[in-house]
Amino acid sequence: MSILVTPQTKVLVQGITGSFGAKHAQLSIDYGSQIVAGVTPGKGGQCFEHGGKKVPIFDTVADAVKQTGATASAVFVPPPFAADAILEGADAGLALVVAITEGIPVRDMVRVKRALEGNLTTRLIGPNCPGIVTPGEGKDSHGGCRIGIAPGYIHKKGHIGVVSRSGTLTYEAVWQLTSRGVGQSTCVGIGGDPVNGTSHLDVIKLFNADPDTHGIILIGEIGGSAEEEAAEWIKQHCKKPVAGFIAGATAPPGRRMGHAGAIVSGGKGTAEAKIAAFKAAGIGIAVTPSEMADTLLRMMPGAK
């Protein structure tokens, strides 16, 4: 098993005809993911063709869901229209909406988050995130479910869950695992924005409940208190070994470090506080990002 998505999950792509959306739809098809529909308003009835595969394009998400049975979407819509695209996905009853778009105004996300309150059908991942990968069984993990922009080939099917706010840092952790012959159940990028749909804690709970996930790498960064909340829960409830890394110990206060959410303000959200919370929760601390996989593997001898 895995969390959130399986290799059988039917995925639609919102914004499939834009250059960014098209490129990654192609890469997901190449990876063997079930890309069953595209949505671009005004281009309904056309087809997205790649590698001998024809993916029908619809004007609305509701149509796409009705015609293809898609249950998850990847949102590649530009920032001014992304909030609308996310809520359209929720309105169509998708189980999972993964918002890749970077640069959505905070106010738009505050409204989206409010609109999704109490919605038990749709889970939002992101925005400003690399997406989700559940590796497949083929060569270089081919045949898995890739929603978003992560490189598929670095993965390997296995039993480690990875959750992170950062894209390239997730790839770093995944690659460290794969290079050591250790596979992943699912890798989730929750995004670097201050308002996001799914938190570290939400993903940790899913990993904890997934019998196929045996250990977890939790990657955080400065800003907010989501890592501390996750650590508190892990301390009380998590049955699985967790290794953690926090980026941004050297970041100057008051400056946004690339990610809109990566900022130490008013003495809150420091790397020190997060690392202290991790330690208190029994999370193995990777002192440098080079040691994320090794830190976890030391906690679970014999892991594969």
Partner: peptide
Amino acid sequence: NGAGLAMS
């Protein structure tokens, strides 16, 4: 490349 990797 990437904010998280740049910070770390």
